[in-house]
Structures are given as structure tokens and as C-alpha cells.
Computed example of a mutant assay.
Amino acid sequence: MTQLNFNLDIEILKDSVLNSNLEAVVKSTIVLVLNEYMEKERDDYLQAAAYERSIERIDYRNGYYERELLLSIGRVQLRVPRTREGHFSPSVFEKFSRVDQAFVLSMLEMVVNGISTRKVTNVVQQLCGENVSKSFVSSLTGKLDPIVNEWANRPLNTMYYPYVYADAMYIKVREHNKVISKAVYIATAINENKRREVIGLKIDHVESFEAWQGFFQHLKGRALQSPKLIISDAHEGLKKAIQREFIGTSWQRCTVHFKRNIIERLPKKESKQIIADMRRIFNSISVEEARQYKEQFVDKYEEEAKVQKAIEILEDGFEDAIQFLNQPSRYHRYLASTNSLERLNQEVRRRERVIRIFPNNQSAFRLIGAILMDYENRERSGKKSL
């Protein structure tokens, strides 16, 4: 039997399977695979495709019936094909009992790692013990894409998202026989239940005002209401798009990026106390306290020539970097930076490195969407609210 190599942490996957922490996406994927394979088995049994006239035909299609299959992740409802004379019997139910857990783990690996042709072939071989054609695999992959697409376009009017995080990262995609960089736009949010949620994904050519504006318009088209605060880095196109698309929304400049910009302008030596004084500003509990510490910082170091550039950067971006202090204090640690989104980007990057170059936009969207869906499922099932 074919042995599969998993890129994911197998212990985590086993724990998810055994504890039934899988969401509808995985079950839906398994149902699609099994239904499609049973359809192929019926075609082979009849020796004729649907609506095909053939002298070799031995029977005729006679619709479907519903049948449950009990898996280690719970029950799934399958659409079992039947024939007029009733002699056809799919092999799935007999074979699945021998490979149930291996197949579930394979499906998880397949969903989160891009559903490549090779991986789908390996999974079906693991299940059925035989090779399948590339056309069958392509047809199956095409039926899996709507799962990610439906998630990525779901309505956002079921609850209010007061705090939204936005960032972009770059990937490599093959297009017209060339390898080019594409920008991946991701938006996450803290919802009114105080839980993190991924609310947006888009792949575009470059990070620009027009692209960010289109991304925000897509979110608004899915009924996203203007949030209280959007947290991001200081990309000019992103800032402009926020101002244009979200009336009444404040922009919070990521303090981690901002402090890094300030520190880069400090002298390499003897800056330890300067950095400590600067960080005290952003550890304040109110806007008034932050402004007070900032003035003290400027008064203390304004005569030091080597600190002047850092002071200019601080003065220029200070107000945008303390907007989080206008929100309830219990949220301050979560709103000061884009750290949570950066960690999510790193998880995407870790999986994306396995592929290195995507064959097209859809394969990239499928992989990244699956990773984000997996992240969201883990957030719902394994973490408390903020």
C-alpha cells in the first residue's frame, strides 16, 4: 500500500481526529472525494459514461440513495450511485474501514498543502489501492475549490468587527511561463465575541493604493461595517485606502514596526537607556500618559545630535501609534501591533515554502485559504476569547 509523507505535525493531526475537532471543511472534502470515486466506479461497472450510447453497456443508471458512513471524525452522509438491475455495489464502504484514519490524515494534509495532483493521486491510491487518471484528479480538484471560495466570500454582516488587522505578503506564482511576485492581502479581526477571525483574502499583482482599495471594497461588498480601528503598518497606499473606504475609522500604526523605525535611527552604542525611555511611552495606560512620557523623552534628548532623527520620526508618527489607547484597556495589548497577523503570515510562509512556486493564482488561493480556514478552526475550538 502507498506510504504517504506528511508535511504537517502528525501528532497534532491525530489529536484533532481522535478528539473530533475538525470542522465542516474537512468532512465536506471527504464527502466530495468519496462521492466522486463512487461515481467513477459506476461508470467503470456500466462500461459507459453518462448519456453515452455504447454496445458494451451492461446496465443503466438509476439515481442515488443516501447512506451514512461512520468515520473517526464522526458521521458523513454519502450520495451512493445505483443501477437499474441493482447488481452494482461500490467498494468504498468495505475498503474505508481499513484506511479510515490514514485517509482522514491524508485529507487534512491535502487540504492544507494545496491539493496537488500528486497528493490527490496518493490519497485515492491509499483509499482504493489503484491508480487514477489525471483527468479524474483534475475534476476532483475543481470540485474542492468551491469550499475555499465559499468561505472566502461568506457574508460579514452576521456580527460586528470593531478591530481589523491588515497586512500583505509576497509569494511567487508562475504566469505566462514566467515566475512573478504576487501580493497576498490578508485581513483578520476581533469580532464582537472577542475572538479572532480571518475575514479577508485576496491575491493581486502589487501592494498599492488601488489594490488595497479593491480589497476593502470587497470586504464592504460582503457587508463589513466600518470598524472602530484598523491596525496595520505604515504603507502609504494602505493608509490612503483606509481613509477613503472607512468613514469614521481610526488608523492604528503598528507600534512594533514604529519602534523599530525609531531604534534604527539611534546610535549603535549607548542606546539602552534611550530605548527603555522610548518604550515606556508605548507602555502607557492612557493617551494623556503617553503624551506626557513623550514630552519628557523629547526634553531629555533634544540636545543630543545623534538622537534628533529618531525624535523626528517619533514626533511625526506618534499620534497614529497611540490610537489603541482610546479603546478599553483590556484590549490594549492586542491592538498595539499586528503581531497576531504577523504570526499567521509566518504560518502561511512555512507551508508555502514547501511549494516555493505556485503553478497559478488558483492553486495559491486554495492553499492559503485552506491554511487560514485551518487557523480559524483552531481559534474557535482551542482558544478562549480575548
Rank of each mutant, 00 (worst) to 15 (best):
R196L: 11
A211N: 13
I30K: 00
V184T: 02
E312H: 14
K309A: 14
Q252L: 03
S208C: 03
I368S: 10
I203D: 02
R350I: 07
F216Y: 11
G129D: 14
F6V: 04
S381H: 09
T141F: 02
K119F: 05
K95Y: 08
N21S: 15
N149M: 07
E197S: 07
I73C: 03
M1W: 08
K172A: 04
S226F: 06
V31C: 08
N21P: 12
P328W: 05
V354T: 14
L156N: 08
I355E: 00
T121A: 12
R196K: 10
D100Y: 11
M159D: 14
N19D: 07
Y65E: 10
E85A: 14
N35V: 00
I73M: 03
N283G: 13
A290Y: 00
L156C: 10
R265L: 10
C254Y: 04
L70T: 09
N261H: 02
Q273F: 07
R333M: 08
H332V: 03
D320V: 06
Q126V: 14
K240I: 00
I171Q: 00
E288M: 01
I186M: 10
G221M: 04
A290Q: 06
R356T: 04
S28P: 11
E150W: 07
E236W: 06
I357Y: 12
I190K: 02
I12K: 14
F6R: 11
D204R: 09
T188F: 00
